[in-house]
Amino acid sequence: MNMMTEAAVEKALDQRMNDLSYKMIGKDVSVYYGEKRALFDVNLNVRQNTVTALIGPSGCGKSTFLRTLNRMNDTIDNCRVTGRITLDGDDIYDPSIDVVELRARVGMVFQKPNPFPKSIYENISYGPRIHGLARSKADMDQIVEASLQRAGLWNEVKDRLQESGTGLSGGQQQRLCIARAIAVSPEVILMDEPCSALDPIATAKVEELIHELRSNYTIVIVTHSMQQAARVSQRTAMFHLGQLVEENDTDKMFTNPDDQRTQDYIMGRFG
């Protein structure tokens, strides 16, 4: 084996490290809505402390895949998921897994900012309260402040925590939703086009936030914007017609993709 170059050894080691650091593993994941099949045997792994972007044209199944990761598809009446998805090695569709506990570990931020029509404080404290994470009022105050700090919203709202969350601007609302998700200390955060309803400045702030969150959380983000995927993610997966076309390092994906369809999509030839 001395014929192996040093670079190759390094690459192999990297590979091994990566295998160990897969946070979630999706194997042969298929999703059906009634008779209609929306996902076809997708094999996609999510790495620890990495931002993974899911791209592809509308209706390609990227949001559907995202929602299988914390079983949000369960809330849709006639939806059926096959295949195997693990979180730290545990099958999340196993009957022994409590979906409530799963969603506390795999949080979600939605396309449209959806703060509850409650105060900013109550928006953040909602999750910790239902999971009993705070023992006292002081504990809760601390969680609320820390979550808002992490979401970069603390300085903007610290004087009006009792005002309604729906009164914030769109970008602030979305960061509030991210803070709300952080408050329950998830391990993975799923984001479904979190910036599609925001203006460029608010988008920049959210992207910056995603960048910072990466050190503590594993993030999967669905986006329609190539630039956004390029800016925030380290890994990118391209979906088309319910199939995973290609999954690769973001740099490689945007400069030299393996698949012609990825090339075409990134160049704007379809989608």
């Binding site: 809330t75 409530v100 979600m108 239902i130």
Partner: peptide
């Protein structure tokens, strides 16, 4: 009541009845 509110609550790991009691009914 918008579905987004329910999703938001369920996505945080709230049960259905918690979602109804704390988010849907107040709204």
């Amino acid at each position: 009541v918008p579905r987004a509110l329910r999703d938001g609550s369920l996505g945080l790991g709230a049960t259905r009845s918690e979602t109804i009691k704390r988010v849907v009914l107040p709204a």
